[in-house]
Every structure is written in structure tokens, then in C-alpha cells.
């Protein structure tokens, strides 16, 4: 009798305690209205050609033939503006994507947005400075230095994310001690923590009206199809030669490359 009484008591109390623990703060979307999925496709190309890892041969503005063995970059902080000029900001925790050539699924950034018609898309190419300095427990998913980023998109020695990584080979590049002609572009830099330094965080804003606006409706998934032209990395305000700059990492020169690659994106069309 006594045992049973205590048992029931514990059961009731634990139920209350567990109930309390399992409650989470529900995020209420700000934009209002019904939510649906919008997909943003990052279709990597090289000039007029499809990007084919390792096998494709391409020529940059300096006339150097090269191929690409690795391409990956962060897309974050996605915002959309509708016809009335109202902006919807995708909640930060659902707004980090690592686009990887060779991983088809990663090339579609899918976000939940209020239904409506959107005229303008903007996003950050890279990772914002706040997330670069956040507590490690907030660095989950593609931002986790362990599981989120094969091939390493994090500088451990100079705390911060690598925003954009492009590697490949070119006969134009002088041979390294192992006899390979590799080029390596690892671009990052969020502006520095306690002392200011280079900032390669780039915000890209794209007018969607010419290519077709996405009409986000319940039960459907509009897809904004962006082309991402890697040739822009080597041409723009600065003509970048692989022979002269086969390794670009944390350096002042990297800002010139970032100023070029900010122009990689153009809106081709939208599938509604």
C-alpha cells in the first residue's frame, strides 16, 4: 500500500518535471501569413560550361587552362523582399548553408518563408561576424567544425570560418615540392575579433524580376535558379592569374579575389 502510494506520487511528480523540461520556446515567424518552402539553387558553372569536377578543362581571363577539384562556399543570412518592399528575414538558425560542388542536395538552400511574391533576394556569401564569434554550442550543422564541413571550412589557428574554397590544378602554376601544379584559394576573414583586419563578408543582392519572380504558395515549392560563374573569381576589378597567385588564403590579396567573386551570381530563371 505504502509502496504503491509513493510510486504513484513519484510518477505524477516526474511527469510534471519532464513535461516542464520538454517544453521549448516555439519560434513564431515574423512575416505573418502562411509559410511555405522556397528553394534557392546554386548552379555552379565556369563561363559557358557546366562545372565538372576534375575532368572539365576551363580557361580564365589570363588565358590559363585549369581544372577544379573542389568548390564549396557558405551562403547565409537569406532575406527576401516582396512587391510592397516588405523584407522577410529567414530566422538565423535556419539560414546557414554550405554549397558543395559534388553534393547535389547541398546546392539547394531551402528556407521557410511566408507565402507571397518576392522581387529581391539577398544573402551573405560567407558567415556573418556574429556567428564567427559565437559560443561553440551555437556552431551546429554546417557550422560545426567536426561534422558540418568535410574538407574543413574553419581556420582553427585564427578562429573563423573559411567562406569560399576553390582548389584545382593548372599547368600555369609552378610545381610544388611534390611535383603537383595545384592552386588553392581559401577565402575568409570576418573583420577581426579584438583587432580589426580584413573583412571578406559579402552581401549579394539579386533583382528577381527579370528572371521571373518566385511565387511562394502553400503546398508548392518555388525554385530560384541561380547560376554561379566561377570564372568571375579570376576576373573583375582585378585580373587574377593562377601563375602569380596559386595560393590565396588569409592575406590582403584575398580581398581582391572576394571583390571579384561577389559578382559570380546571376539569376537565370525561376521554377514556380
Amino acid at each position: 500500500m505504502k509502496v504503491k502510494f509513493v510510486f504513484i506520487y513519484i510518477l505524477v511528480i516526474s511527469a510534471i518535471v519532464f513535461q516542464a523540461c520538454s517544453r521549448k520556446d516555439d519560434v513564431v515567424p515574423t512575416g505573418g501569413g502562411e509559410m511555405s518552402t522556397l528553394s534557392i539553387q546554386f548552379d555552379n558553372i565556369v563561363g559557358a560550361k557546366k562545372l565538372q569536377l576534375n575532368t572539365g578543362a576551363y580557361v580564365n581571363a589570363s588565358g590559363e587552362t585549369f581544372n577544379i577539384s573542389l568548390l564549396q562556399y557558405y551562403i547565409s543570412n537569406i532575406k527576401l523582399q516582396d512587391a510592397s518592399g516588405k523584407t522577410f528575414v529567414v530566422p538565423q538558425d535556419s539560414s546557414y548553408f554550405l554549397v558543395k560542388e559534388g553534393d547535389g542536395a547541398s546546392q539547394f538552400a531551402k528556407v521557410r518563408v511566408p507565402t507571397g511574391d518576392y522581387y529581391t533576394l539577398s544573402f551573405v556569401l560567407g558567415v556573418d561576424s556574429l556567428r564567427n564569434t559565437m559560443d561553440i554550442s551555437k556552431r551546429t550543422g554546417v557550422l560545426d567544425p567536426a561534422t558540418g564541413m568535410d574538407n574543413g571550412m574553419y581556420w582553427s589557428w585564427n578562429s573563423g570560418y573559411i567562406f569560399f574554397k576553390l582548389e584545382g590544378t593548372s599547368d600555369a602554376v609552378p610545381a610544388d615540392p611534390s611535383g603537383q601544379h595545384k592552386f588553392r584559394y581559401h577565402i575568409g576573414g570576418f573583420g577581426g575579433y579584438s583587432a580589426p583586419t580584413i573583412n571578406n563578408i559579402k552581401t549579394v543582392t539579386i533583382d528577381l524580376r527579370n528572371g521571373g519572380i518566385p511565387r511562394v504558395r502553400a503546398g508548392r515549392q518555388a525554385n530560384v535558379h541561380l547560376m554561379v560563374d566561377v570564372l568571375k573569381v579570376f576576373d573583375g576589378n582585378t585580373r587574377v592569374s593562377l601563375a602569380k597567385n596559386s595560393t590565396v588564403m588569409f592575406s590582403d590579396f584575398s580581398t581582391l579575389v572576394a571583390n571579384n567573386y561577389v559578382n559570380m551570381f546571376f539569376h537565370d530563371h525561376t521554377e514556380n
Binding site: T133, P145, A146, Y193
Partner: peptide, 28 residues
Amino acid sequence: GGIFDLDLQPIAPIINPVEMDETMDNVL
């Protein structure tokens, strides 16, 4: 002073090729 948070420090020696030469993923 390249690392500004003690919680981020251990990653550096773990993945440094001349120190532990491991990946975080594999350690876990």
C-alpha cells in the same frame, strides 16, 4: 592571439598536421 575563446582552442592542435593531425569528426 589568433584564438579568442578557450572553447575553440583545442581544435587547433587536434587538426594541426604537425601536432595531432586528426579531424574533429574522427575524434568524436
